[in-house]
């Protein structure tokens, strides 16, 4: 797993629970004070252990931690770069949702080694879509739920998101769009 992901988890933990929490966390689980390098490769399973350890330390479920991470990734000051990159996916929220089909390829042309899970979007009816998330990163659907909630705010759309547990190697997010243009949203300029 690319260190970028672990670094994001580290940034989330420090921003949310404080530097002291992170230091004692890494002393306990990673043999001393530790910081991830975004461009180095780490053991794949470590990322998921990090999340489980965080959940244990904060008495939350791993799913909640992952959703919080997703929210953090695009809503905080240091999430601005990712927020912008995602918003290139579409001029409005609906276009953006359908751009998730390409998320894996879009991330790959930017950063070859990222290997994001494959997403596929299907329309259920006029106002709902389902997003299938493969389980190459178990639980990634929760991170996506956090990201999509924040991005909906960003576009000014009002949306309900329901995560259904994995089944046959995939998890599903069901998005119900209540209003396309609920608020003004946040300004996005292309450059």
């Amino acid at each position: 797993m690319l260190g970028l992901i672990n670094k994001a988890i580290e940034n989330f933990a420090i921003d949310t629970y404080g530097k002291r929490f992170w230091n004692s966390f890494t002393r306990r689980h990673l043999n001393g004070e530790f910081t991830f390098e975004p461009l180095l490769e780490y053991e794949h399973a470590l990322t998921f252990r990090l999340i489980d350890w965080l959940a244990e330390a904060r008495s939350k479920t791993s799913a909640d931690i992952m959703e919080d991470i997703g929210t953090f990734l695009v809503s905080q000051r240091n999430g601005e770069a990712l927020r912008r990159l995602l918003r290139f996916g579409g001029a409005n929220f609906v276009e953006f949702i359908f751009s998730l089909d390409e998320l894996n390829e879009r991330s790959e042309i930017a950063l070859k080694d990222l290997n994001l899970p494959q997403l596929s979007v299907e329309r259920i009816n006029q106002n709902s879509v389902s997003v299938r998330v493969d389980q190459s990163w178990p639980g990634f659907e929760h991170v996506m739920a956090g990201i999509l909630h924040s991005l909906a705010d960003d576009y000014g759309a009002l949306v309900f998101i329901n995560v259904s547990p994995p089944e046959g190697g995939s998890a599903y997010l069901v998005l119900e769009l209540i209003q396309h243009h609920f608020t003004e949203g946040r300004k996005f300029s292309l450059a």
Partner: peptide, 14 residues
Amino acid sequence: LYLLEAKAAIRKAS
């Protein structure tokens, strides 16, 4: 435009 921004972000990381 997307690629230019992604490249800038990665260059910063590196």
